[in-house]
Design a protein around this nucleic acid. Structure first.
Length: 621
DNA sequence: GAGTTTGAAACT
DNA sequence: CAGTTTCAAACTC
């Protein structure tokens, strides 16, 4: 094909259709950036003129340097109108909601048109020389924007050449009706958690066409997926892909304090691509080269996935072999279903916790917590009964006791008795008859036995009410007596608070345990990678995480110690329930048996929640 | 900043 | 549809 050399030269085809330089015939087809992408199609998005909007087609930002404005813009939001607009209507009516900005890597080093923090200050500038900015090579054109302040040569992507531009658009659409649509389809799951961050995000969006990278490992901006900060998907046809969830190479790019250092990222990427590292994207260059040489020598190249992948990236394979699929895996089903060694880029990767968390575990956890709550309440009630009776007896037999004391003791005693009875009956509500539930609450189911779960929920809500208002006259304990008295309420409050404290504590322990297992697994995989590589790199993030793990791990096992020996996936009892069960057996009765919770006595739910949050101050689980 | 690499787009 | 060429961005030095 004739080369479209610049300098105003117009390629044969163009000249042809250009007769009048891009005749504006049959311009019925309009740019539609969204149709077919889960969105509301619009029909018509005019080419945005000079978008200075910060909206991007890309997805969630991976780095802290990325502003919220750079966050993904969902295709449906890009366009509004459903009526096709003829290209002749250009210049486009650009509104804030219809602007489409070229995708740009959030982590790209600041360009002249960007602020230091990555916030786009202005539209990206192209440097086209031979395409006249009328082909998709041109980012401006591809994104549907006019060139403005670009460094392009012989640019036709401007108002002055509207006709030519229109024709080019039409030609492009002729070739590919989706040419101007966003390449990144957002996930049906919608919004992501704000806590998601670089390298740890479950990239739910995916490239519609997928990339076809061969040499970049999909860890460089050559890769459209990587550039858009999304994971490669089943749509991709890339080779030796390392841009998938759980990829240590990928994680290496984003973890650590260097996550925002582009040079660092690239160095890590290079190391990863050459196959020298696992999560050790920080391996020295010599190592990388050495590995590369070895690969070549042994014929294990990127084109031999069965060899390269197995040797170079044990994690997915390892994980996969160790556990069945989990519904909690974030891997797209289509991709997840692919075997690790099947085809290029079709590596299956799963969450580190995929093997740990099972549905039944959650159910079991809930059940255990409920039972635990009940036992706590019962235990406390019994203790109170004994204590109060003793006090009462003592008071009655004490000649020296004053009248006031006696009265007070009597009062307390009655209240506690009531409390105890109440709780007992409540805890056995499913056994007791409905007649015991003389609730005055409209939302209290009358005449129906309540499940432990219901009771637990009610307890929780009532506690909330308790905390919210100091009103002395309202809390029905487990749907029992309506004639509450202050001492009674206090007693109940204490019991409820204790219940919550213990339940929350156990739940926290559970989460911590879960985290620990995840970290153990991560460490395990890293160890495998390191062993294979022979590298003794110290993962910057691992170091800190290990410390955290040891702090959290109240069972006494440290990450380092377990990493090589323990096999989390083979644990019979789920870490979640095991934690609770153990806890319930050990420190059920009462007390600040947990070091981290020693000061949590009778504190409110809010306090406990804070404690949990503080203890679990980490980016992800 | 020049040269190289890369992969999408364009083309055959 | 596969292979090749063109192109501009990304990257390296």
């Amino acid at each position: 094909m004739g080369k479209e050399e610049g300098g105003g030269e117009i390629p044969p085809k163009m000249v042809q259709s250009d007769t009048a330089d891009f005749p504006s015939k049959k311009l019925a087809r309009q740019l539609d950036f969204t149709a077919g992408f889960g969105g509301v199609s619009s029909g018509s998005v005019n080419l945005p003129e000079h978008p200075q909007s910060t909206q991007r087609i890309g997805v969630a930002s991976p780095s802290a340097a990325v502003t919220v404005q750079q966050q993904q813009i969902k295709p449906p939001a890009v366009v509004a109108a459903a009526v096709p607009v003829v290209a002749a209507q250009h210049p486009p009516l650009t509104t804030a909601s219809t602007r489409v900005v070229k995708p740009e890597s959030p982590k790209a080093k600041p360009r002249p048109n960007e602020l230091k923090d990555g916030t786009p200050k202005k539209q990206k500038q192209c440097n086209c020389k031979h395409s006249r900015c009328l082909k998709l090579y041109c980012e401006c054109f591809a994104s549907g924007t006019y060139c403005d302040g670009c460094n392009c040569v012989n640019c036709y992507n401007n108002v002055d050449n509207e006709a030519a531009r229109r024709d080019a658009i039409e030609a492009t659409l002729e070739r590919n009706p989706n040419a101007f649509r966003p390449k990144i389809a957002s996930s049906p799951h919608g919004a992501r958690d704000s806590r998601e961050e670089a390298g740890e995000v479950l990239m739910l969006a995916k490239h519609n066409k997928g990339c076809h990278c061969k040499k970049s490992g999909c860890l460089k901006k050559y890769c459209e997926c990587f550039q858009a900060n999304i994971l490669c998907s089943e749509n991709c046809k890339c080779m030796d892909c390392k841009n998938f969830e759980g990829s240590e190479e990928r994680q290496a790019l984003f973890h650590g304090d260097h996550a925002n250092n582009m040079a660092y990222i690239q160095q890590a990427a290079n190391a990863a691509i050459t196959g020298a590292i696992g999560s050790s994207g920080y391996a020295s260059t010599p190592v990388s080269k050495k590995r590369k040489v070895q690969d070549l020598f042994f014929g294990s190249t990127a084109k031999d996935p069965s060899v390269h992948r197995l040797g170079n990236f044990p994690q997915p394979h390892h994980i996969r072999a160790s556990a069945p699929a989990s519904s909690l895996s974030s891997v797209p089903a289509s991709r997840a279903g692919t075997t690790a060694v099947v085809g290029p880029s079709k590596f299956t990767y799963r969450s580190l916790l995929a093997d740990i968390i099972q549905k039944q575990d959650l159910k079991e956890l809930c059940s255990v917590l409920v039972v635990l709550s009940g036992e706590v309440a019962k235990t406390l009630s019994d203790q109170r009964i004994l204590t109060d009776k003793r006090a009462e007896d003592h008071a009655e037999t004490s000649i020296a006791s004053s009248t006031q004391d006696r009265l007070q003791n009597q009062k307390d005693s009655d209240a506690e008795k009531t409390t105890a009875d109440d709780c007992s009956s409540a805890n056995q509500a499913d056994k007791a008859g409905p007649e015991e539930s003389s609730s005055d609450g409209a939302d209290m189911p009358k005449g129906r036995p309540m499940s432990p779960g219901t009771l637990a929920l009610m307890c929780d809500e009532q506690d909330t009410m308790f905390m919210a208002s100091a009103s002395p006259n309202r809390i029905m304990g487990h749907g029992c007596s309506t004639s509450s008295q202050l001492p009674y309420e206090q007693g109940m409050t204490e019991i409820y608070a204790e219940q919550e404290r213990i339940v929350l504590t156990k739940f926290r322990d559970c989460l911590n345990r879960l985290i620990t297992f995840g970290e153990i697994k991560e460490t395990q995989c890293s160890s495998l990678a390191r062993t294979e590589i022979g590298s003794q790199r110290v993962h910057p993030s691992n170091g800190t995480e290990t410390v955290r793990t040891e702090t959290r791990n109240q069972q006494g096992s440290t990450t380092n110690g377990v990493a090589k020996n323990a096999s989390p996936p083979t644990v019979k009892t789920s870490p979640m329930t095991a934690s609770v069960i153990t806890a319930s057996n050990n420190d059920l009765p009462r007390g600040p048996s947990h070091p981290e919770n020693g000061d949590a006595k009778s504190k409110s739910e809010k306090t406990d929640v804070k404690t949990i949050n503080a203890a679990d101050n980490r980016p992800k689980v």
